[in-house]
């Protein structure tokens, strides 16, 4: 195995991991606040199409990424209105959002089918493979790592993070102390939407600089599974996303080299299988089950 090949494998693994990581980080924060938003796939697609459209019309891919972020947040606002203010069922609304996003992105993306745009690629191109691996990837790859660190710090060490977790563990208690439960959940959902949108733009701006319907092909669901897999911890999320990216890449590399490690069907099921296994293991290990926020999915009705 040449150095070039190793670098190619590692870069591909980071590429496969990055959008999963970004989307899952957003969903992690949302779930930590006690809200379950299953619409990640829809928000990713809307981010992907918004990112492509803006990047194509302005010619500046970075603007596309910003647009994806805003579009994702905007559509998550609809979810927040329905589930938080109107107290609609979160699971049903989330699923509806996933379907809605798929349809709306296809509609909005129709004029952009069949064209390509500038890639949101590395800022500097390196010939040396090691430098390329370390500094020559898309800015989003580094951003995802920084975001992981930021989310970890926010949840673990900041006062606001503590309040957010309190809201997710016991919305009534947090409310009794005087924290604005709904406001915090709104912000968390908006952050989740923005991250999902940004993750979607990774597909339409970096990996495959184009728009095609259902471009993300189900990655949003894997992101949701990853949050559970990581038992709501950002560090494990990073590990899980990169592990998954590495497994996908190795599988394709092995096939390209002429042998198959697993049946492809097994690989498609792997993230979900891994999630089930992890859930089972955690449940066996501790009495306090899965680390899931105690109020996850429960609507908050202020008792005033």
């Amino acid at each position: 195995m040449s150095l070039d090949l190793v670098v190619a494998i590692l870069m591909a693994a980071a590429g496969a991991a990055t959008p999963l990581l970004i989307a899952a980080l957003g969903e992690l924060v949302v779930e930590k606040s006690g809200v379950l938003n299953l619409g990640v796939e829809g928000m990713m697609l809307i981010g992907a199409v918004a990112g492509f459209a803006v990047s194509y019309t302005t010619g500046v891919p970075a603007l596309g990424a910003v647009a994806a972020l805003l579009a994702g947040a905007l559509v998550s606002l609809v979810f927040a209105l329905l589930t938080l203010s109107l107290m609609a069922n979160q699971v049903a609304t989330g699923l509806a959002l996933a379907i809605f996003g798929t349809g709306v992105s296809a509609l909005a993306g129709a004029p952009f089918v069949g064209i390509t745009t500038t890639t949101l690629g590395p800022l500097v191109a390196f010939d040396d493979p090691i430098l390329r691996l370390l500094f020559g990837q898309s800015p989003l790859v580094y951003l995802a790592l920084l975001l992981t660190l930021a989310v970890w710090w926010f949840l673990k060490h900041s006062r606001q993070g503590l309040i957010l977790r309190a809201v997710g563990e016991s919305s009534d208690a947090a409310h009794a102390i005087g924290y604005p439960v709904l406001k915090i959940r709104y912000l968390a959902v908006l952050f989740g939407g923005a991250m999902a949108g940004l993750a979607g733009s990774y597909y339409s701006l970096v990996l495959t600089p184009m728009w095609a319907e259902r471009l993300t092909a189900g990655r949003g669901w894997i992101a949701i599974a990853l949050v559970v897999f990581a038992s709501w911890k950002p560090g494990r999320l990073l590990l899980g996303a990169y592990l998954f990216g590495f497994v996908i890449t190795m599988e394709l590399q092995a096939k390209a080299a002429g042998f198959a490690l697993f049946a492809p069907e097994f690989l498609s099921a792997l993230p979900y299988l891994a999630t089930i296994v992890v859930l089972a293991v955690i449940s066996l290990g501790r009495r306090n089950a899965t680390h899931a926020p105690a109020c996850l999915g429960k609507p908050f009705r202020p008792a005033v």
Partner: peptide, 11 residues
Amino acid sequence: DPAKEADAANA
């Protein structure tokens, strides 16, 4: 599956 097709091509 555009992402997977791209990854396969890169591999």
